[in-house]
Design a protein around this nucleic acid. Structure first.
Lengths: 349, 349
DNA sequence: CTGAAAGCGCTAACAC
DNA sequence: GTGTTAGCGCTTTCAG
C-alpha cells in the first residue's frame, strides 16, 4: 500500500546496532548505554517504527488487548448507554498503556442448534489468544462465566458484585447502597408512605441486592414497600409496570426504578395517563445516564460512577498482568441526584 | 494457567499428518483428500485447537480485526447511542467471519503539547498493524483522516457522505434526504408556515447537507426557514436554541433538530417554559434513537438505518479484504416516523 | 554492555 | 495429495 513497513531490523541497521539492542531499549529491559539508547530512539523515530503487535504477541504471548463481550437483547434500549460509560472508563486506562479493547456484541438467542453465542465469543477470544484478559459486566446469579474463563485460562474481572462471595476479582463502588438509601430517605422525608420498586431481571445479582437495600431502608423508617415488581429493563416492561401500579386503588405515591431507561419510560407513561409527575407521583431512576437530564421533568436518580467502575476494572486487569501497581482506583459511592421528578407526597385524600 | 495451549503441531501429530496439511484444511486452500481432512478435523476438535491469532497475523499480515476510533467530547451526551447502533451493525457482519472489532475512544483535546489524539490513535492502529481496516464516521468538512489513512496504508470506509465527492469508499442510505423531505411535508401539510432548523456542528458534512435538504424542501412548498440555528449536539446547546426561538416575537410553530438528543432536550426545554408540544410547537428529531420512544410526548423523528449503515460499512471493508463478494447491502432509506411531538400548527393569533 | 542465535505458531512455496 | 522448509518480526537466553 505505501512502501514496506519498517521492521526492527531496519531500525537496528540504521542505528548500527543489533536487533537485540533495539528490543532492549523499546522494552526498557536489559542494560543499554545511554548512547546506544539515543541512537536507537532517533533511528526508530526517523523510520517511524513501532513494534508489530502480532510479532510481539506471538513471541511474548501477550496481546496487549483486553476483551469485552456484550450480550444484547434485540431491544437495544437498556444496556447501551451504560456500556458506553463503562467503556469510556476502561479505555481511559487502557489507551495510555497502549492496550486495545476488543469488543464483541452477541445476541441472546443461541440460534437453532448452536451453542450459546456468549460462551462461544469468550471461547474464541481465549482460543485464538486474542486478549490478555476480559472484563465482565452484569453479574448474574449462577453466573458460569468465571468458571468458563478460568478453565479457558484467561484473566477476568467483574464490574459489580460477584454471585455469592465468589472469590473472583471484581470492582464495586465504596459505600454500595448509599444512593438507594438516600433516595428512600428523600422520599420518606417528603412524606411518601407508599413507595414501590420496579426491579430489573431477576437473574441479575444487583437486582436482588438493590431491592434488599430498598426494603431495608424503608424498614428503617418503619415502612414496607407498597409494591415490588419485577421488570426486564425494557421500555414496554416499564410501561406495563407503571400501568399496574397506577391501576391500584392504593397506588404508590413514589416509585423507584432499577435503571434510568425504565424510569423515563415509566415517567412518560404516567404522564400519558394523566398523572402528574412529581405532583401525584414521584419517580426515581438509577445510574444517572445523560438521558435523565434531557427529559422533562428531569429525572431524580441514583448516580453510579460508571466511568470510575470501568476505570477500576481496567486497573485490576492491568495489575494482574503486571502492567501497573495494584493500587485500587477509587470508585465514587452512589449518590442521589435530586432533580425534578420527585417532590412532596400528594395530600392524603 | 491451564495446561499448554495446543498448537498446530499437536494437531498434526495427533492426526498423523504434517502441519502443512492441517493448515490447508483449516484454510480450505491447496488440495487435501477427504480422508485427511476428516482426520485433521477430528484431531483439531479433540484438542480444541484454534489457530493462534498472533501467529496467523504475523505470518499472513492479516489481523482479522477492524478498528474504529470514536472521538468523544467530555459531554458524552451526543454521539453515544448513535455509535452503539452502528457498532451493532458492524459486529453483525464481522462476528460470523471471525473478525474482531478494536475500539478506541479518544478525547477531543490534544493535551498540552501533544499530538491530536484521534490522529495518534489511527497511527497506532496502523503502525502496530493491529487491524486490517477501519471504519470512519462523522464525515467532516476538510476531513484529513482519509489522507492520513491512505499514507498509513490502511483500508478505510466512511459511514456517511464524503467531503466533496472524494473518491473514498463510503456507504450511505439510498434515497438520502427523503426523510427530511417527508418531515417538511408533514409539517407543512399540518399548516405550519414558520418552521425552524437547529443543526449540528458546522464542520460535519451532514450538517450542511441536511440543512440544504430542509431548505429545498421548504422552498418547494414556497416557504423559507423561519430560523436557522447552528448548535453543537449538546443538551445545553439545544436548550439555548429553543430559548432563542421561543423568545422571538414571530416564533416558529415547528422545529427540526439535527439529532434526537437535541430534539428531546429542546422539547423538554419548551415544556419547561410552558410551551405545549405539540399544541404550540411541533418538534422533530433525527436518527430515531430508542430515547425518542421513551419520552412523553414521544418524538416524531427521521429514522436512519444506523444498524444497516454499520452492516454495509463492514461489508465494504470485508469485500476490499477479499473476504466477501462486493454485493452492497441495502441500507433502508431515511423515513419519517410520526409520533406525538408533532401536530397541526396552532391557530393564527 | 552488546550481539548471535533460537524459536513463538503458522502459511506458502516448493519438492516429492 | 502430502510433507519439508523457510521465514513473518520480535524477545530472550547466553556468550563475548
Amino acid at each position: 500500500m505505501s512502501g514496506r513497513k519498517p521492521t526492527i531490523t531496519d531500525v537496528a541497521a540504521l542505528a548500527g546496532v543489533s536487533v537485540a539492542a533495539v528490543s532492549k531499549v523499546v522494552n526498557g529491559k536489559g542494560s543499554i548505554s545511554a548512547a546506544t539508547r539515543e541512537r536507537v530512539l532517533t533511528a526508530a523515530s526517523k523510520l517511524q517504527w513501532t513494534p508489530s503487535a502480532a510479532a510481539v504477541a506471538l513471541r511474548s504471548a501477550k496481546t496487549r488487548a483486553i476483551g469485552m463481550v456484550a450480550k444484547r437483547s434485540p431491544d437495544l434500549l437498556s444496556a447501551d448507554p451504560h456500556f458506553s460509560l463503562l467503556i469510556s472508563g476502561i479505555e481511559g486506562e487502557l489507551s495510555p498503556l497502549g492496550y486495545g479493547l476488543l469488543l464483541h456484541i452477541v445476541g441472546e438467542q443461541p440460534g437453532p442448534g448452536e451453542p450459546d453465542p456468549e460462551e462461544a465469543a469468550y471461547r474464541r477470544l481465549a482460543d485464538e489468544r486474542r486478549v490478555d484478559g476480559v472484563v465482565l459486566t452484569e453479574s448474574r446469579i449462577g453466573d458460569t462465566r468465571f468458571e468458563l474463563l478460568r478453565t479457558l485460562g484467561v484473566n477476568a474481572v467483574l464490574v459489580g458484585t460477584p454471585w455469592r462471595a465468589d472469590p473472583v476479582p471484581s470492582v464495586q463502588a465504596t459505600g454500595l447502597g448509599s444512593g438507594i438509601r438516600a433516595a428512600v430517605d428523600h422520599l420518606v422525608g417528603h412524606g411518601h408512605r407508599r413507595v414501590a420498586y420496579v426491579s430489573g431481571p431477576e437473574d441479575r445479582v444487583h437486582t436482588v441486592h438493590r431491592r434488599r437495600v430498598f426494603e431495608d431502608a424503608l424498614a428503617a423508617r418503619g415502612l414496607a414497600p407498597s409494591h415490588s415488581l419485577v421488570s426486564d429493563f425494557t421500555a414496554a416492561g416499564a410501561v406495563d409496570a407503571i400501568s399496574a401500579l397506577l391501576a391500584d386503588r392504593r397506588r404508590p405515591t413514589a416509585v423507584l426504578f432499577a435503571n434510568d431507561s425504565m424510569a423515563v419510560a415509566g415517567l412518560s407513561a404516567a404522564r400519558r395517563l394523566g398523572v402528574d409527575v412529581p405532583g401525584e407521583l414521584s419517580v426515581i431512576g438509577h445510574d444517572d445516564l445523560p438521558l435523565g437530564e434531557l427529559v422533562y421533568p428531569q429525572l431524580t436518580t441514583v448516580r453510579q460512577d460508571l466511568v470510575g467502575l470501568g476505570r477500576a476494572a481496567a486497573r485490576v486487569l492491568l495489575a494482574s498482568l503486571g502492567e501497573v501497581d495494584a493500587e485500587p482506583v477509587e470508585v465514587r459511592p452512589p449518590e442521589l441526584v435530586v432533580r425534578e421528578s420527585t417532590g412532596p407526597a400528594p395530600d392524603r385524600t
